[in-house]
Simulated assay, not measured.
Amino acid sequence: MPELKIEREHALGLAGARTVAERWREQAQQEWGMTCASEPGETEDRMRFERSGVSGQLTVTSTRFDLHLKLGFLLGAYSGKIEEKIRANLDELLGPVA
């Protein structure tokens, strides 16, 4: 099962990162049909998400976004394009790298 790990640093602080994570969650649900569950914490938040053929977790801290994604067999053939799309999406949401 192919796995993607995408890490991004940012300078938004935890409150700003939570706002971006919420926008990402909305996109994931509306555009990609994901089911998402958030687990807020004191120093980091975790968001678990899934749909048929995809599951993963987004960890958000005051300085980082760490996305871990597992693709099912059929979507594994498109892992390069999926990773490219997710990276572009995070770049757009987070702005320039810190």
Rank of each mutant, 00 (worst) to 15 (best):
R64E: 14
K85Y: 10
A37M: 12
S52Y: 11
L93V: 03
D91H: 01
R8P: 06
A21T: 02
K5E: 11
S38P: 02
R18Q: 09
V20M: 04
E92V: 00
R64M: 13
L69I: 15
R25D: 08
L71Y: 01
Q29C: 08
D45V: 02
E22M: 09
D66K: 14
R46Y: 01
L90E: 08
L74R: 13
E50S: 15
E31I: 00
K85N: 13
A21E: 03
A15D: 14
G53R: 00
W32N: 06
E22S: 13
E31P: 00
A37V: 14
L69T: 15
M34R: 04
H68C: 12
Q30E: 14
I82R: 11
R18N: 08
L4D: 01
L4Y: 03
E83Y: 00
R87I: 09
L90D: 10
R87K: 15
W24I: 03
V20L: 05
D45P: 02
Y78H: 13
E3C: 00
R87T: 09
R48F: 10
V97N: 10
E9V: 11
G80E: 04
R51A: 12
V20P: 01
L71M: 04
I6W: 02
G41F: 06
E26H: 08
R51C: 06
R23L: 12
M34E: 09
A77W: 13
R64G: 05
E3R: 00
E7K: 12
E42S: 08
S38A: 14
K70V: 12
E92H: 05
K5V: 13
D91V: 00
R8Q: 04
R25S: 08
K81W: 11
L69H: 07
K5F: 05
Q29H: 02
L71Q: 02
Q27H: 14
L93H: 00
S62K: 15
Q27E: 12
W32C: 01
W32Q: 11
C36Y: 01
E9T: 14
D66Q: 15
T59P: 00
E83I: 03
A98F: 08
E42H: 03
S62F: 13
P40F: 07
V54K: 03
R18C: 06
E42Q: 10
G41C: 02
K70P: 00
L74G: 10
L58C: 03
E22N: 12
S62M: 11
V60H: 02
P40A: 05
A88L: 04
M1P: 11
